[in-house]
């Protein structure tokens, strides 16, 4: 029983890591008032670029850097379109996802070595492996927390840091001000566009890192649609966490947990049909959304930034 719990917890954390990176990234982006629906595309691009890098150089660090750079480039496009060009943010985000999905698939069939027909699919590269922390990793059940890869350990640090930065620093206050009321923030002397650019790009960087975790650790290698809709689930997780980085953990654990249970059930050969089991994350997402929306109408406020997805132009109401 204890072994089973430990293994479920271990898989939950492994599956949840990429979700947490992306959730925290999108929370920061949305807090500045920019809605980025391009997550699915950015995660895929992060995953493919990271895997291609690690395949050729063997360097995991370089792979992470390349993935982050990919995130910077794609989120800059979104930032430019939605901040400078005041484009519709929903459509801009969708186009990042459409482009990212197509381009990642293109790269997956082009970046590989000639011997593999230029395909990246089916290749094996370097990957992150769990690092045991002495003593702690021997704890019953909770030991699973301390037998993870480095990217998961970084998550333990990022969550409190992201919370502290948002609620306890001047810059975090400015960020929240810009997302709640850009007019007031502008009057306070905050450069609204600059803040929105910074956090859209920072968010995109974290999202792409989440994608890189998939191809470097969770499911090492490259397959088309390696994300399987995680980019969209993350958008629901942002709502689930009420735009608070410290709560990002719960959503990620919930969905990581669903993955873990699917894993276990399929391994033990269950009578529940596989498609039904695979539908679970998507159906749970819808249920979570309905619940969160219902709570919002009851309590009036869940924490959505007031100016989310509203372009800001000086002197225009």
């Amino acid at each position: 029983m204890i072994a089973l719990l430990a293994s479920i917890l271990a898989i939950t954390l492994r599956a949840g890591t990429s979700l947490i990176y992306a959730t925290i990234g999108e929370i920061y982006t949305e807090r500045s008032g920019i809605l980025n629906l391009g997550l699915e595309g950015m995660m895929l691009m992060g995953a493919v670029s990271a895997f291609a890098t690690v395949y050729y150089t063997g360097s995991l660090l370089l792979a992470l850097l390349v993935a982050m750079l990919t995130g910077v480039v794609l989120s800059s496009i979104h930032a430019f379109l939605s901040i400078t060009m005041r484009a519709n943010q929903v459509v801009s985000g969708l186009s990042i996802t459409l482009f990212g999905t197509g381009f990642a698939s293109f790269l997956g069939q082009r970046l590989g070595p000639e011997s593999n027909g230029h395909y990246l699919i089916g290749l094996i590269g370097n990957k992150f492996t769990p690092v045991k922390i002495p003593f702690l990793s021997n704890l019953p059940v909770l030991g699973a927390l301390f037998n993870q890869d480095i990217l998961t350990y970084i998550v333990y640090l990022i969550i409190p840091a992201a919370w502290f930065f948002m609620y306890k620093t001047r810059a975090g206050l400015n960020l929240r001000a810009v997302g709640e009321s850009p007019q007031t923030a502008d009057a306070m002397g905050i450069n609204v566009s600059k803040v929105r650019y910074i956090y859209t790009i920072l968010g995109g960087t974290l999202v792409a890192l989440g994608g890189a975790h998939l191809s470097l650790s969770y499911a090492p290698g490259w397959t088309d649609n390696i994300t399987g809709g995680r980019g969209w689930i993350v958008i629901a997780l942002v709502i689930f966490s009420m735009w608070n980085p410290s709560r990002a953990i719960w959503g990620a654990l919930l969905f990581g947990g669903i993955n873990a249970i699917q894993f276990r059930l399929q391994a033990t050969g269950t009578t529940i049909s596989a498609p039904l089991l695979n539908m679970l994350p998507y159906i749970v997402t819808i249920v979570v959304l309905v619940l969160m929306t219902w709570i919002e109408t009851m309590n009036k406020k869940v924490g959505a930034p007031e100016a989310l997805a509203v372009p800001y132009m000086r002197g225009e109401k």
Binding site: L98, F99, G102, F103, F106, H118
Partner: peptide
Amino acid sequence: MGLPAAMGIVLQGMILFPMLAGSLFTDY
């Protein structure tokens, strides 16, 4: 030519970017 078929999808995905940037000029 042995190019990935995703080529067509890349082209499609690219169209919306200039389109969105250009929409500024229809309204402003």
